[in-house]
Design a protein around this nucleic acid. Structure first.
Lengths: 233, 233
DNA sequence: TGTATTTTGCTTGTCGACAAAATCCATGCG
DNA sequence: CGCATGGATTTTGTCGACAAGCAAAATACA
């Protein structure tokens, strides 16, 4: 029989929605709920032992972020990853990589640098441990920290959303990860940090562009492979 | 006595949330509800003659877009415009002006051009009529249409949100509008359209940058004036 | 008179219930 | 045998109710 997923924690008033939101968000980004999965409100309400109202509010939030799609009068489902739109996604991602890294080189404080370095260390450990899930999550946080150092809340907001969206994509294609690329990413991160520390804006821009291209190309290759496999079945 | 604001339209099931959302959004963007206004759920529920549930869902959506702020266990209020963050805003706006216009020059179809021209005509009419509200709204749609022509849904999404946010700012400072600048904007729009039609990407980029700088500088001047006025009181 | 504390009133967060809509399923017809 | 029809069931959208939480009013006290 399946594991009992019921969660019956005592929660303070007001924390309910946030709790549901986080649970669902994590499950979606980690592909525990793969794209297309229907989300049953009643079932969730029972599982988390709360009423449907907070569940619905969490779903509305997720829908606002595009992680979930509500079909009127029909079930809400985990949003699909639109593969036709991937070139646009890569384009936007590369642009945000560039502008956030540039701004970081311009505005970083010493505190920002220590924070960024800490995440870089964590990333290196994840690579050493061949822990793909951790690599994906920490990589996200690493670049989010760089964006923070740029001190532009609009960019950090946009970029965070793009990176979250990307987590699902990476999860699909980087699930088994045993080549030498991650190590290369570690080195590229080091270079980026150096440029940010040196306040060398053009170099930061160049490195960020290269790094983004690197990742995008790798993903495109993996996706192309995957496509071919599907066709040849 | 105040006008009776009660709205008692028969609405189909499922349209309730969208209705509230649109009413509130319009009121917020048009400063009918100025920043800081508290939004009372009960009052709204009575005014729109529906229960609090759909109202809350609409508020959650608006909170997700940053247009309202929910203080836990306290009233939700219309989000303030963060004047300290304005340089960041202008920066992000300029960037999005550039990339969307570039992409439009690259990918526009004839249909896109007719759509853009239609909005440009509408804008010119608004300028002629000295209708500031219409100018602001149509200007938004004009640039959104250019973004659409660029065929990158991530950019259009980001840009739309920035433009909406900007509507409030423009509303504050462009409420009385009687100088020669709007006419200049019309001309600049014309030039941008020409560059997009000619698929001249560098020129489109340059013109978009100039146009954005123009608007940003004007706003900064108005804001600086306003600041001084406040201080001198 | 001024400050600390209780009370009161109002607003929000959550709940269970109900009705409209959609889906499912069995039956009947071509 | 396939497809349409219609009722039963599930699921969503909305409602009214109620308790927890906060702010201001009222009270007690120095």
């Amino acid at each position: 029989m399946a594991k009992d997923m019921t969660v019956r924690t005592e929660r303070k008033r007001g924390e309910g929605v946030q709790f549901v939101y986080r649970v669902l968000r994590d499950d979606i980004l980690n592909l525990v709920l793969p794209p297309g999965s229907p989300i049953d409100e009643n079932q969730l309400a029972e599982r988390l032992s709360m009423s449907r109202t907070p569940i619905r509010e969490a779903l509305v939030r997720l829908a606002g972020e595009g992680l979930v799609t509500t079909l009127p009068n029909r079930s809400t489902v985990v949003s699909n990853i639109d593969f036709l739109d991937l070139p646009s996604y890569f384009d936007a991602l590369t642009l945000m990589y560039r502008v956030t890294t540039r701004l970081a080189a311009e505005n970083r404080t010493p505190q920002d640098l220590t924070q960024i370095r800490a995440l870089q260390d964590e990333y290196a450990r994840a690579v050493e441990a061949q822990d793909a899930a951790a690599m994906i999550a920490v990589n996200r946080d690493f670049h989010a920290a760089i964006a923070e150092a740029g001190r532009n809340s609009y960019y950090t907001g946009m970029f965070s959303r793009l990176l979250d969206e990307g987590r699902r994509l990476l999860r699909i294609y980087y699930s088994s990860f045993n080549d030498q690329l991650p190590r290369r990413y570690v080195e590229e991160h080091e270079d980026i940090i150096a440029a940010i520390e040196a306040r060398d804006i053009p170099r930061a821009d160049r490195l960020a562009t290269q790094h983004a291209d690197q990742i995008v190309k790798k993903l495109q290759r993996l996706i192309a492979q995957d496509r071919r496999r599907h066709i040849e079945l």
